Amino acid sequence: MGDWTNATPTSTTAGILRPEELAQRTTLERYAAGPGLQRWVENYWVLGWDLPPGTAHASQVLPHPACTLSVERGNPRPETQGQPVVLTGVVTRRFDVALTGQAWVLGVKFRPGGLASLTGQSARPWRDAVLPARAAVPDRVIDRLEQVGPDLAGKECVALAEDALASLVAPDHPNDDRYDRLLTVLDDMLTDRSIVQVTQLEDRHALSSRGLQRLFHHYVGVGPKWVLARYRMHDAVSALDGGWTGSLTDLAHAHGWYDQAHFIRDFTALVGVPPSQYRSRRV
């Protein structure tokens, strides 16, 4: 087994639209996964907010190609059937949540494919799904996660979550070579920005088109072309949030789009406004 400390280096705010606005209305803490779970878990986060009555904040995220387990206290979502531990699969569209009142969330962000590898299940049925986590995760894990809440410090909550998830990693847990291969492909996507076509990955990793598709659909829940496009869109949005001053044509070319028109169509379809409007914050 390799050292997965930085296997998928996506532990950033990439994907959060207008992160500075979210920071003004919430508190957010991130924690690294412990060494026993780094192969599957990317990080933990604790988000809390307490908004005055009658006010709301529209949180908008372009999610990563990863599943999340969350413990949610306050503002229950109808899909969760009142259960506090929630599984959110890979979301292929912009993910919008209205933050109101007072609430608290502990999130476990898995590496792409991590939850599927830990549970031995396919991630494909979880795509675009929000459901009670008991539908996919053993009760012993859920029972432990239900012990966390805002009355505990963030580090205590993370320690409890680590203990709960560690029960899935038995001493005789089989080495999942296919998952290791997936992580290697993902690492290339994230560290080599010159990769803008799936065929480049097929050639580099000696995988057929069908083989690569099956690998991604089982572990991640979506195909490799979608994942690559989402990472490049994260890069483009992060550049705009960081104060990009160049032309949109240069931005498009820098992140794999061959023409500005195609980039604008993709950006608008996902983010909801054209990149020029997003940059000027006129929404």
Rank of each mutant, 00 (worst) to 15 (best):
V169P: 03
A136L: 07
A164S: 08
K109L: 15
V105E: 11
L152W: 00
S167G: 09
R204A: 11
A153I: 01
D177I: 08
G114Y: 01
I195S: 07
A166H: 07
E156N: 11
I195F: 07
L207D: 09
M189G: 08
L183M: 14
A123V: 00
Y179M: 11
A164M: 02
D151F: 12
L182I: 12
H173Y: 08
T119S: 05
G149M: 10
D180M: 05
R214G: 10
L183R: 11
F216D: 05
L118R: 06
C157I: 02
D143Q: 11
D188Y: 13
L201N: 06
V198K: 03
P125N: 01
D143Y: 08
I142W: 03
L182A: 08
P174V: 11
E146A: 04
S122P: 02
V185R: 02
R127E: 06
V141N: 06
C157S: 03
P171R: 04
G120F: 07
A166S: 11
A206S: 12
L152E: 01
L165I: 08
A103M: 14
L183F: 12
D188A: 14
E146K: 05
P138T: 05
V196G: 10
N175W: 13
F216P: 05
E202N: 15
S117A: 15
Q213W: 09
A129C: 15
L165S: 01
L182P: 09
S194P: 01
L145G: 00
R178Q: 12
A135G: 05
G154F: 00
L207K: 13
A103H: 08
D176E: 09
E146G: 00
A153G: 06
Q213D: 14
G211P: 03
Q121M: 06
L190K: 11
D128C: 09
V148R: 00
F110T: 11
V130N: 14
V185P: 05
D128S: 01
P138G: 03
G113I: 02
A136H: 04
A116Q: 04
G113V: 03
P132T: 10
L201R: 05
L212P: 10
S117L: 12
A123Q: 01
P138S: 01
E162Q: 04
L160F: 06
